[in-house]
Nucleic acid binder design. Structure first.
Lengths: 191, 191
DNA sequence: TTCATTAGTTAACCTAGGTGAATGCAAGAC
DNA sequence: GTCTTGCATTCACCTAGGTTAACTAATGAA
């Protein structure tokens, strides 16, 4: 089977094509135009999204009004506010499309259905939240243990696709610095 | 019932004294002497601990050999490497006692038993991991959106117990700064 | 086409926090 | 009791990244 979602799930759990097709029938295809919202801060998160094409990103806005990019999801990655999705509390994140994107979405109700009929999915989604947790922990230690330059190099190495397809000011925000500083770092590096 | 663990669990889920007593029979009391380890980096986490007295803290060590405090657990709080505990992968954290401490521990096996016999516990522990995840997310945005001084003030306000009972260099590390800088900040504030 | 935005770059200057070293003080070890 | 070790403080100096502002190039709407 050549479906990218199937491949993505297969990386984490064992699942038959049959079960996957059942799962797929619970999802819906959808589109998000450039700059349109997938999740609005203050709403309860109803869907989890798999990015088929394009790029989505999540961010918070602090009391000073500054935006902080938290996650960037390129092709073949999942994105949502997992905490809000699982707890059904309101989201503190916004998720928006950086460019026109095609996504496959799964609602909370159908997520429950998938878990009930295909037990392995419970595990798959528990792994998703665990990974999100670990990502966040890693991020904290990366901020504390590395300079912005080191964090940028790390990103270039582990996520070249993000570097290629995302405007720099999003990347700067994701790294926790200003666009001018990223520009300065890049200048220094590519000399 | 006057048991602090009962109180702590009651804050998150509804549970009868009967069920709680069953749960309690699955736990063990233990002690950690000052500077002794509860969890060693590289081991699989076998226990989750409730701090009855004393203070425990978790930290990572980066490639440069610098220590970064991740969590500080005073009386009546839980501590463990939840990721390692649930996934049974090796831990990247060390957890040590800051002072002689009394803890109540629950093993992975007994955790499974508790979940099987008292379904509400599954929820309780899912909430623990969700909260840990949210804490970590909040921490990232606090680092990006606030100065060390603001982070310190926030800690004083929301966690005075930590300020009172933990030596300053641990707090500095938790805030992501050096002890000298915390000293400077405190001097500036208390003038 | 033209005018207005938005993105990226550069540069001068500023500041929060790091670094290294010195000092004083309290607590264990013996 | 002295010796040592660890913690907090202070100070002088340094540096990564923020700030402001100017300039350019690219995109987009009318």
């Amino acid at each position: 089977m050549n479906n990218p979602i199937y491949k993505n799930i297969k990386e984490k759990i064992n699942i038959s094509e049959q079960d996957f097709n059942n799962f797929l029938s619970l999802t819906k295809n959808s589109q998000v135009k450039k700059h349109d919202f997938f999740i609005h801060e203050g709403d309860v998160t109803k869907y989890i999204a798999f990015v088929k094409s394009g790029v989505l990103y999540s961010y918070t806005v602090d009391k000073k009004g500054d935006k902080h990019v938290v996650q960037i999801a390129v092709k073949n990655h999942w994105i949502s506010d997992l905490f809000s999705f699982f707890s059904q509390e309101v989201s503190v994140f916004n998720i928006q499309a950086i460019e026109d994107s095609e996504i496959t979405i799964l609602s909370k109700d159908n997520f429950e259905k998938a878990c009930n009929t295909i037990p392995a999915f419970e595990k798959f989604f528990r792994i998703l939240i665990q990974n999100a947790y670990v990502d966040s922990l890693r991020r904290v230690s990366r901020i504390y243990g590395n300079s912005a330059e080191e964090r940028y190099l790390k990103l270039v190495k582990t996520n070249p696709q993000i570097i290629q397809s995302v405007p720099q000011h999003y990347i700067a925000s994701y790294l926790g610095i200003k666009p001018q500083s990223l520009s300065r770092i890049r200048k220094k590096l590519y000399n």
